[in-house]
Design a protein around this nucleic acid. Structure first.
Length: 508
RNA sequence: CGGAGCGUAGCUCAGCCUGGUAGAGCAUUAGCUUUGGGAGCUAAGGGCCGUUGGUUCGAAUCCAGCCGCUCCGACCA
């Protein structure tokens, strides 16, 4: 059968790259690990930004912008933070180039007194501002967000999933009490969960990261974890309770109503362009991407079937009117995003381009459709009947009346499909290490999903040991889901009394 | 940074083992045909065969270095 892609999901890594390329979302750049995000990929990011930004503002946060460059000394202030990020830092050491021996290179005369790091995250530079902005309990809570790019010098980049430079949103807040800060962290986590599920149609498990997977410098880290179609986990968003660690390091203090100088409790939380990788690996199929309508830059694409004949004019006029009528409608609280694809390329090619890009609804309109007031409709979420492409002829008026409902159905359908996969592939009931080994035996390519097991939540060296044990099977602890039972089986690792259930699995 | 594989036309790749004038399909351009859907025929354009050096009368092909990409590890949103 002829597919829109020439690689199927059984070669998942190759398939992923084929989808990104086929959907024309991004490409690698001359700089290793840094990607060019192309209009269709960036369009998805703009939808993510727009909707998440609404939610961030609705919960009382304000947007700011902090510098890309951070004085090296700032990073050095929080010891764990240094440990976590030192190995992946881009550093600016000079401010001028000079031609020396015929080669353009940094001018030794123009060496910076203090090197600047390119932000890998902004806790330190925002903390510095917080220490100046906060004086009184009346300045709290301070709720800030920024949309920015960050740089982490990663070893093995993968488009969208792990790039040297990536785009994200980072929330940073300061609070008068620990309880308030923890509540803020929970709020952000819940915002991410609902955003992932309702907007990206990507079901996730929200929970707390174990001690050894925490953000460097955090007291506690929570995450949402999504299951990709190869069974691996993708950490899709994080929320960190930083306690007073950064407040201590950066002197973020306030006078309470009794006049006592007190350290703030701070939080930070973020999601990145990685979400786009998650959407691809959650919803893509062997014909390319399938975009949830809520984030599709174009939800309906109209492809006129032109043949350089006089009736083309009528077809175009009909299509223009159709697009105009559709554009008056609203779905997911926003005006419908409709495109008339009038590029001067072959119609058949247009169709397959939109299939690969994952436009939720593709309408083909030929002379006979135009004459009969019909449209030929393809649903990207339900493209084929066996090997054949399902193209359904519908009266134009019916389509207009049902378009919004249809998009809502597609959104729900993609979620339901992914949710069923997630639920079916979290295995419970394994109670000893031999069972884990046995379950994850066999090839890396086998679909395994995750295990939900009980443990005694060891810390320190005991936890390190478990980490190493898991690592031998390429497993990690993903998180301890928020939703916990009343009673627990014995700890799978130690045999001690269980106190918590955790998810383990392979991850990106 | 370690292990494996790969760099040949815009794209996907063959040719390399066994050295002897640079190939195919798709895409592009032109003409004709076709017209409910990824069309057919004919013709044309398009290559420092990643890069530097070595071996050789002769290198896409053999050898070495370098650069880049992909996969597997270590790192990670």
């Amino acid at each position: 059968m002829q597919r829109a892609l020439n690689i199927a999901r059984d070669r998942f890594a190759d398939w992923y790259q084929a989808v990104v390329a086929g959907a024309d979302m991004a490409e690698s750049s001359p700089v290793r690990g840094a990607m060019v995000i192309k209009p269709w990929g960036y369009g998805v990011w703009e939808q993510i930004q727009a909707e998440l930004d609404r939610r961030i503002k609705a919960t009382g946060h304000e947007n700011c912008y902090f510098p890309l460059f951070i004085p090296l000394s700032f990073i050095a202030k929080e010891a764990d933070h240094v440990d976590g990020f030192a190995k992946e830092m881009a550093v600016v050491t000079h401010h001028r180039l000079k031609m020396i021996d015929g080669r353009l290179q940094p001018d030794p005369e123009a060496k910076l007194e203090e090197p600047l790091v390119v932000r890998p995250t902004s806790e330190t530079i925002i903390g510095d501002a917080f220490s100046r902005w906060i004086r009184s309990h009346r300045d709290l809570p301070l709720l800030i967000n920024q949309w920015a790019n960050v740089v982490r010098w990663e070893m093995r980049p993968r488009l969208f999933l792990r790039t040297t430079e990536f785009l994200w949103q980072e929330g940073h807040t300061a609070h008068a009490s620990e309880a308030e800060a923890v509540a803020e962290t929970a709020m952000a986590l819940e915002m991410y969960r609902s955003f992932a599920e309702d907007v990206l149609a990507m079901p996730v498990i929200a929970g707390e990261k174990p001690e050894n997977e925490r953000f460097p410098g955090a007291v506690a880290t929570w995450s949402i974890e999504a299951m990709m179609q190869d069974g691996k986990a993708l950490q899709a968003g994080t929320s960190h309770f930083l306690g007073t660690h950064f407040a201590e390091a950066q002197n973020i203090k306030f006078q309470d109503d009794a006049g006592t100088l007190t350290l703030c409790n701070t939080t930070s939380w973020g999601v990145s362009t990685r979400l786009i990788g998650g959407v691809i690996m959650t919803h893509g199929d062997d014909d390319g991407l399938r975009l949830p309508p809520a984030i599709a830059p174009r939800q309906i694409v109209v492809v006129p079937m032109l043949r350089d004949k006089p009736e083309d004019e009528h077809v175009m006029a009909y299509c223009e009117e159709l697009v105009k009528s559709l554009s008056k409608l609203s779905a997911f609280g926003q005006p419908l995003r409709v495109l008339l694809d009038n590029k001067k390329i072959k119609s058949a090619e247009k169709r397959w381009n939109w299939v690969r890009r994952g436009a939720p609804l593709i309408l083909e309109v030929g002379p006979r459709d135009a004459a009969g007031a019909n449209v030929s409709m393809m649903r990207r979420d339900d493209l084929r009947d066996g090997d054949k492409v399902k193209s359904v002829i519908k009266p134009r008026q019916d389509f207009l009346e049902n378009a919004v409902q249809l998009l809502t159905e597609i959104q729900a359908g993609l979620y339901a499909e992914a949710k069923a996969r997630l639920d079916a592939n979290i295995k419970t009931g394994i109670t000893d290490w031999a069972g884990v080994e046995n379950y994850f035996a066999g090839g890396d390519d086998d679909f395994k999903g995750w295990l939900r097991i009980s443990w005694s939540k060891p810390t320190g060296d005991a936890l390190e040991k478990i980490g190493a044990q898991l690592k031998a099977l390429k497993l990690t602890i993903r998180n301890a889901p928020l939703d916990q039972p009343e009673t627990f089986a014995k700890c799978l690792f130690t045999g001690a009394a269980g106190v918590e259930e955790i998810l383990i699995g392979r991850a990106y």
